[in-house]
Design a protein around this nucleic acid. Sequence first.
DNA 1: GTCAATCATCTTGTATGCAAGATTTGACTA
DNA 2: TAGTCAAATCTTGCATACAAGATGATTGAC
Lengths: 224, 224
Amino acid sequence: MRGEATPRLREALEDDIVAGRLRPGQRLDEVGLAERFNVSRTPIREALIQLASSGLVEIRPRRGAFVLLLGPRELIESFELMAEIEAACARLAVRRMGDDDREALKSAHHACADAVRAGDTEAYYPTNAAFHAAIYAATGNRVLAAEALRLQRRLQPYRRLQLRVPRRMDASFAEHEAILSALLAGDGEAAAQAVHAHVLVQGERFMSLITALQDEAEVVARAG
Amino acid sequence: MRGEATPRLREALEDDIVAGRLRPGQRLDEVGLAERFNVSRTPIREALIQLASSGLVEIRPRRGAFVLLLGPRELIESFELMAEIEAACARLAVRRMGDDDREALKSAHHACADAVRAGDTEAYYPTNAAFHAAIYAATGNRVLAAEALRLQRRLQPYRRLQLRVPRRMDASFAEHEAILSALLAGDGEAAAQAVHAHVLVQGERFMSLITALQDEAEVVARAG
DNA sequence: GTCAATCATCTTGTATGCAAGATTTGACTA
DNA sequence: TAGTCAAATCTTGCATACAAGATGATTGAC
């Protein structure tokens, strides 16, 4: 049990945030978390600091830690950044991917297809994330892939809301199909543009959802 | 003491690393740093964790913290990521920058010119960084700009070595000039390509320097 | 009855203590 | 003489303690 508390806590909290069990805006009480995980405040603090650095948590000095709540502007900007990075990934992937990368892409796409056929929105999140991750990996650039993954996780809580939009899952999957064919056809520019649009459309359709989320989170923040 | 030890320590250590006073590969002893800054190990640890998350320090569990030493592959990959992000910045900057952004770019460029005219390599680092930062800011996307700045700082210790190459400063400045004209002319694609090449060339010319640095750092690591 | 100020309480930020793993040193053996 | 194993030492990781700022409640004044 010695020497692995902090990483374990970081992963547990990260999962809670990414999976939506901890909502944006919610306060993260050090003592409460320490009791819940049966550790002292020290490793909790260290985990929170790491989460703050990776952009999932916001630490306000002397006021505590909160699940990061991105405002409308920051959300749009984050999705724009994500779109640019994923487009770059697509361009590089076309130039460098090997047969194993191609297989991984197809396999991830099929997993998405299963979720869509089953109409299982909940199952679509991870398969969707895996499809995008397969593109990152196909670049052969681990630093780039790690960076893309970091941003992906940061936005995951908000994507989750996005997919509540009716028919969004089907539209998303159709876009995946276009991306995949461009990638396999070796058309880097087409793949880049398709990915860019695919990511950006999520950010642009957010405005109404954001305000709803903001209200919701403020209630949570005040209640907690 | 007041509640500002950790941020102060983080900035101090970050400056030391970025400025090259702490070398890549060097060990960062918690007790030693605590004594040097007259604080306990706690804020030191928290600062180190933050630096690790932002990619300047590597923490090996139970073995201590070290100034991050990027290997050849990671360096190449990092510069490629930087090139992609800066290219995206250039594209967006062309579409969105205002007159104040244009002025800031010109002003930063003139500061670079001064350093070049004086042949002052040491003064060129910050002006060069400021010129690039002006491009990030001109995108109007703060999230993107913050991300670009983070990567810039991460690579700063290595850029410093890069500029030791003879005539590199002049070549860099000439490339800046091409970038600036493309930006001011409103040619996003040209600006993006110029920036991309400008950043990537630094990574590609590194191979010989890297090995030198690796040896140097290993000596430091063993001596310390 | 409402607003403000002060005081009690709670929470964070830093210091210190302690145990377990890592490193180093020294002795013993091949 | 070189290599290996073991014990002592050092360092980290977590727990606990304490002080200062933030929050909230209560009381007093208007």
